[in-house]
């Protein structure tokens, strides 16, 4: 149960990062923290004490619910795609604005 609370705290830390980080890179980092901790939270919630890995073995054992794992795998893929795209755009932004600080990016109007 302690791991559930820990991952909830991590979600809140990530949101604090999104609200306060000054540069684009830090925003992407906090974005990834929120995402990863949401995934960990979900996986912690569905796993019960004494459950095994959901891999088919010869002797049937008590398994963890595999559906959340499949869903969270998809979420990881989506998160990776979004982070990659945002990092690519941050390179472009740096070329155009000469800075990655939100305040300086916003100030200039093209």
């Amino acid at each position: 149960m302690i791991s559930v609370y820990l991952s909830l705290i991590l979600v809140l830390i990530g949101f604090y990062g999104l609200m306060t980080s000054e540069t684009v890179i830090k925003t992407v980092l906090s974005f990834n923290i929120v995402e990863a901790s949401l995934i960990v939270l979900f996986l912690n919630l569905v796993a019960l004490e004494g459950d095994n890995v959901p891999i088919y073995a010869k002797t049937l054992k008590k398994m963890v619910d595999p559906l959340p794992q499949a869903m969270m795998l998809t979420t990881i893929v989506i998160g990776a795609a979004i982070s990659a795209l945002v990092l690519m755009m941050s390179i472009k932004i740096f070329h155009y604005f000469g800075s990655l600080k939100w305040a300086e990016i916003l100030e200039r109007d093209i």
Partner: peptide, 13 residues
């Protein structure tokens, strides 16, 4: 260009 990349980044994030 800078304007559209900035807009796109806002949109996505």
């Amino acid at each position: 260009d800078g304007f559209s990349v900035r807009a796109g980044m806002y949109y996505l994030l």
